[in-house]
Design a protein around this nucleic acid. Structure first.
Lengths: 318, 318
DNA sequence: GGAAATCGGGAAAAGGTTTACATCAAGCTG
DNA sequence: CAGCTTGATGTAAACCTTTTCCCGATTTCC
């Protein structure tokens, strides 16, 4: 062991880890020796003893989805700044695996940051018991010591409805997200708001991906809406693409709006009107929430309406 | 400890971990007890003893970049299937931090999967020493026990050149990736191939992001190319967007091609001609390479040309 | 100048699991 | 029937730090 190379035994620990008083000269000697031998404390031993691994677990439905990727980015960046590592697991959109991954990860980490839109509440509660700490993203759970960071999607839908109503739209199709997804329910709430009261909303089953959006277009059109609000921007891009194939012009023939403001949304043709949410910021907030200093149970993140070219007045003749 | 609840001490270990012989009845008793008490072995202790954490580290320049996000997705999925966990670090595109993160992560994990386009070779070699095992993605290093998985980007550029040449293009602008990025050099190699011999290539400094692409368009146009090949699809999307603003029609006035086939590339307007690489597959291969059973030092992944609407014959009059 | 307080550093325990070794009973062979 | 082999289980060491106590030495204050 490196310590033998110099003088002491546990003084090394004091120098490298604890802020305990050590005379400067000895400290230097230790550091030099450590440098020479290339000594690195063993993380497993440290973890075992101090009972904390300085690691958080992040579980998301799909690591390849830019939405979650950016959340992860935000979390990892903040965690790294606080000298924590980030353990990830993708769950292939499978609720059962969301549960298994979460439970398994909980053994390793100091706490869990969980995006689990479809996990059942009882299961979620089990996870809360298994994890030392738990922060939910876009979901809430009544449970002591469980925090949440949620985007106020109902406000987004309200803003979108108000915008479209002011343009003169009356009949709007909503392309729903994954069934039973918590954050879809939040969006649905927005349609029961005053801003949506003058509007006719038709709901079309869809999903959360670009391809889902493409495939839902035909059905949506059967309801003859003058505007389509999509579960998110990925869906909206799919919709835009399919509408173009069908020979419909956006926004001249029909308006399209998304939610989230994905990076590409500013560069589609036409640019996508959307409710912009900073996903990286969402990840940041999740980390903040995770850290002990925050006391509120739920942090609300709100976005803002971004109007681009994809929405306009409805065509004269319906 | 849960073991006290029943009978033995290390028999528990034999039941739960080792495949050592244990009588069925005792095994059952142990399992039941473990279930009752909710006993979970402490990962830190296991790691300490067996000298392996069953964890891999993944370091990428930008976790938010879909390209890297999908690589990560592929790795995490395969690793999980082999009962390994995945520790991630984003490096904010900073070579210095690439190094720091890699060294730090190396302490924790059984091996490292590294996307470090800009790290200097000596530093890379240091990382190779520090890590128990190392697999490089889109980069090679002469060093024992270091594997690589690389995309044959020079083939991509060759295919693109051949395609554009066959359409009648003569003068092509190449929007370069980040300076000193290994994978950009690979692309550049493609321009020295027979397929590119009849072409005039002008190089324009750019980068790897959508915004980089937007901003490089003006300069590229000063060379009056009839086609633009972009470092990747993100850049290409930015180019498409900017060209539209400038009133140029793609592919009528100018052709554009990307590399990688990002998820959105099939749905831009027009669809993007590109050299399609399965990034998830790339991640998969990286894991394969990581696993001891593979013996070749370098795995080559090749993509295929995908022709969509963004390339066509050059305009008659130059 | 002496006693108390303070500071620096050493020895050893603790943390939870795996595994080599020892033990013990039973089955088998000669 | 005795000795040997085999298979199952308990015991204890080892893994590598951190941290708690404790002791010696230096300083400070009365």
């Amino acid at each position: 062991m490196a310590r033998l190379a110099e003088v002491s035994t546990a003084t090394v620990s004091r120098v490298l880890s604890g802020g305990k008083p050590v005379s400067p000269e000895v400290a230097d000697r230790v550091r030099v020796a450590a440098q020479d031998v290339g000594y690195r404390p063993n993380p497993a031993a440290q973890t075992l003893l101090r009972g904390s691994s300085r690691t958080v677990g992040v579980v998301v439905p799909d690591l390849g989805n830019p939405y979650f990727a950016e959340i992860l980015k935000g979390i990892a960046a903040e965690a790294a700044a606080d000298e924590h590592h980030t353990l990830v697991a993708g769950t292939e959109e499978d609720p059962e695996q969301e549960y298994r991954s979460a439970i398994e990860l909980a053994r390793w980490v100091d706490g869990l940051l969980l995006c689990a839109p479809r996990m059942s509440t009882p299961r979620l509660r089990e996870v809360a018991e298994a994890a030392r700490r738990l922060v939910l993203i876009n979901r809430v759970l009544r449970h002591h010591a469980v925090g949440s960071v949620v985007v106020d999607y109902h406000l987004g839908v309200r803003a979108l409805c108000e915008h479209l109503a002011s343009l003169g739209h009356k009949r709007i199709a909503y392309l729903q997200g994954p069934t039973a997804a918590w954050s879809d329910q939040q969006r649905q709430r927005g349609f029961r708001s005053p801003e949506a009261s003058g509007l006719t909303i038709v709901r079309v089953e869809c999903g959360s991906t670009l391809v889902d959006g493409r495939e839902a277009v035909e059905e949506a059109l059967t309801y003859q809406p003058t505007a389509i609000i999509c579960f998110n921007d990925h869906v909206a891009v799919g919709v835009l693409s399919r509408l173009r194939e069908l020979g419909l012009s956006v926004p001249h023939d029909i308006s399209v709006a998304g939610i989230d403001d994905a990076p590409m949304s500013a560069h589609t043709d036409p640019g996508l009107t959307t409710y912009a949410v900073s996903t990286v910021e969402l990840g940041r907030q999740a980390w903040e929430r995770f850290t002990p200093k925050v006391t509120t149970a739920t942090t609300h993140v709100r976005g803002e309406l971004v109007v681009r070219g994809s929405t306009a007045r409805p065509p004269r003749r319906r």
